Computed example of a mutant assay.
Amino acid sequence: MAKAEVEVITSERRRRHWSRADKERIVAAALQPGATILGVARAFGVHSSQVFRWRQQLCGKETPSPGFAAVTIAADPHVATARTQGLIEVEIGAETKIRISGSADPAIVTALIAALRAGSR
């Protein structure tokens, strides 16, 4: 049989008071790689919504990532061959580049757009 820990509150104050240090310790545990809010909340005996609130108070509100990114059109030295063969090139950030050469099949272009939309969410 598992032992359960019970906290008895004998004072008139019915709510537990968490010090700022305790809140910071719990939020820091929740920010560790691989940690989940629910797991941390259970480990410290607090409701998960309280951990979310403390994280918001201590770390600030999360700003949503922008839906659109800046686009730069650069001259390509292979433009002459690309015009005759067909070329679609999409760059996302500095590391991701998608290039479709040859005749652009509408199904491939549609799949590319769907993948980009799914990845931006």
Rank of each mutant, 00 (worst) to 15 (best):
residue 110 T to Y: 05
residue 17 H to N: 07
residue 109 V to M: 12
residue 115 A to G: 12
residue 40 V to T: 15
residue 33 P to R: 04
residue 65 S to Q: 13
residue 16 R to L: 05
residue 42 R to I: 03
residue 15 R to E: 05
residue 86 G to L: 06
residue 36 T to C: 03
residue 54 W to D: 04
residue 89 E to P: 00
residue 25 R to P: 01
residue 60 G to F: 09
residue 88 I to N: 06
residue 63 T to K: 15
residue 87 L to V: 12
residue 93 G to N: 02
residue 36 T to S: 14
residue 56 Q to K: 15
residue 119 G to Y: 02
residue 33 P to C: 07
residue 24 E to T: 06
residue 112 L to K: 06
residue 111 A to P: 03
residue 8 V to A: 03
residue 2 A to S: 07
residue 8 V to M: 08
residue 35 A to P: 01
residue 11 S to D: 08
residue 63 T to I: 14
residue 118 A to F: 07
residue 64 P to D: 14
residue 80 A to Y: 07
residue 81 T to L: 08
residue 89 E to H: 04
residue 95 E to C: 09
residue 92 I to E: 06
residue 20 R to C: 02
residue 81 T to S: 12
residue 80 A to S: 12
residue 106 P to N: 06
residue 88 I to A: 15
residue 46 V to R: 02
residue 93 G to S: 05
residue 54 W to V: 04
residue 118 A to Q: 10
residue 108 I to Y: 10
residue 39 G to W: 02
residue 42 R to C: 00
residue 31 L to N: 05
residue 40 V to S: 03
residue 90 V to L: 14
residue 71 V to N: 06
residue 110 T to K: 13
residue 31 L to W: 01
residue 26 I to D: 00
residue 108 I to Q: 09
residue 83 R to G: 02
residue 30 A to R: 10
residue 93 G to K: 04
residue 13 R to N: 09
residue 79 V to G: 08
residue 27 V to A: 08
residue 4 A to F: 01
residue 48 S to R: 07
residue 87 L to D: 13
residue 62 E to A: 14
residue 14 R to V: 10
residue 53 R to A: 03
residue 28 A to P: 05
residue 23 K to M: 13
residue 74 A to P: 01
residue 36 T to I: 03
residue 72 T to Y: 09
residue 21 A to L: 06
residue 98 I to F: 10
residue 8 V to C: 01
residue 81 T to E: 15
residue 20 R to Y: 02
residue 67 G to F: 10
residue 66 P to V: 13
residue 25 R to M: 11
residue 39 G to H: 01
residue 18 W to E: 03
residue 35 A to G: 01
residue 91 E to G: 11
residue 2 A to H: 04
residue 41 A to G: 03
residue 110 T to G: 04
residue 1 M to P: 07
residue 38 L to K: 09
residue 63 T to F: 09
residue 100 I to W: 03
residue 114 A to D: 10
residue 74 A to S: 15
residue 77 P to N: 09
residue 92 I to M: 06
residue 55 R to W: 01
residue 40 V to G: 02
residue 104 A to Q: 15
residue 95 E to R: 14
residue 14 R to Y: 02
residue 51 V to K: 04
residue 9 I to V: 08
residue 76 D to K: 08
residue 76 D to R: 14
residue 121 R to C: 08
residue 90 V to C: 09
residue 71 V to C: 08
residue 31 L to D: 14
residue 37 I to W: 00
residue 21 A to M: 07
residue 92 I to K: 10
